[in-house]
Design a protein around this nucleic acid. Structure first.
Lengths: 191, 191
DNA sequence: TCAAAAATTAGCACTTGGTACTAATATCAG
DNA sequence: CTGATATTAGTACCAAGTGCTAATTTTTGA
């Protein structure tokens, strides 16, 4: 049985959202209508053609890439940063980050946010975590907004090390704390 | 003055990296050569055509959106486990786990494997990481197969704690080591 | 029930940004 | 000057469309 026009258009819309790479021809055979019908549908719904859709996705990506190249490698959104001094990031805990069984966030997500922030705060092309001591102070749950603060507390230039103290809070309560020892390739300000 | 073939191709490459959305025609006028020359250049450098480039960027984006961080409950495949004793897991490092800049795996992936394993080895409905001290001993790269071993070394039943020693190796070389202090709700064997 | 309206299908010319291929020129180096 | 290399030109063809007209089918309302 064929769908009504409305139903088809609704499904069409969702299908294209799910997979913007689909051609009119594929859609036509999927919905058992002619290519022309699909085109009319797209027009009515103001859905651009395949190439324009792809360009859109790519352009979006590109923009994000350009201005978030350092940030792209980060878990959580960095909202404030002062290189070699401090940094702040937000991470919204969602269903997929918690144990189904008890709704508590898996430790490695909190660590990932912290570790990413520790890497980001270092003013260097390359920063690696060497050592870290961490405390999971209080369970975090889906829906919580975790704010991570990284503070550079010291350096050992001879060993190319930077020391960072990290605290994550939910509504002003500490949930995670850690010390990070990071390795950097170059000293501050070098090029 | 026109560039030499080599110079032009070098610039061409960079130009396309900087802006993959540029057409052959635009490139031709930019370098003051014919469109055909640009096409020959692209062929020699194996640079795909505009649409394929854009599709690549878009597809990359699409994938990355899905896999940017471990969503799965357990990171790595657990291949052997003896509850409350020891456990073993394998994690194959792929391109998406490493820094683009230097090809070294991001620390939180290694931590995630370790942490997942520490949680799994505990014979309890609910285990949480309380404290952890970790060392990133040696850089791990895409293509490496990381084998994590968790060993339960002690317990403090009065505090509901389990202590675990964890070692991750690549081809028998230690790359990551850590001690984990885990919290469990119930004692061993309880139900 | 039957005609008008709405929806669908068909067909054709044209567009972009190419590929694949052939052939003619231009340029440079020994 | 000649042969190799580089460049340009031109043709046919492709995918995935747009834009347009026209025909056919389906639905609906009086």
């Amino acid at each position: 049985m064929k769908y009504s026009k409305k139903e088809r258009q609704k499904l069409l819309q969702q299908t294209i959202i799910d997979n913007p790479f689909v051609t009119d021809e594929q859609l036509a055979s999927q919905f058992n209508v002619s290519v022309q019908t699909i085109r009319l549908d797209r027009m009515e719904l103001s859905i651009p053609e395949l190439r324009e859709r792809i360009k859109g996705v790519a352009a979006h990506n590109f923009e994000n890439d350009v201005k978030s190249l350092p940030i792209d490698e980060v878990i959580g959104d960095i909202i404030d940063i002062e290189l070699d001094e401090r940094a702040l990031s937000i991470f919204d805990v969602k269903e997929e980050h918690v144990f189904q069984r008890n709704g508590i966030a898996r430790g490695h997500h909190l660590f990932a946010q912290a570790n990413s922030l520790a890497v980001a705060v270092i003013d260097d092309d390359l920063a690696l975590t060497v050592h870290s001591e961490i405390h999971f102070v209080k369970p975090v749950r889906a829906g919580d907004r975790v704010i991570s603060k990284a503070l550079v507390t010291g350096k050992d230039d001879s060993k190319s090390r930077t020391f960072i103290e990290l605290t994550s809070t939910v509504e002003n309560e500490v949930v995670f704390a850690g010390k990070f020892e990071m390795y950097r390739t170059k000293g501050k300000g070098e090029k």
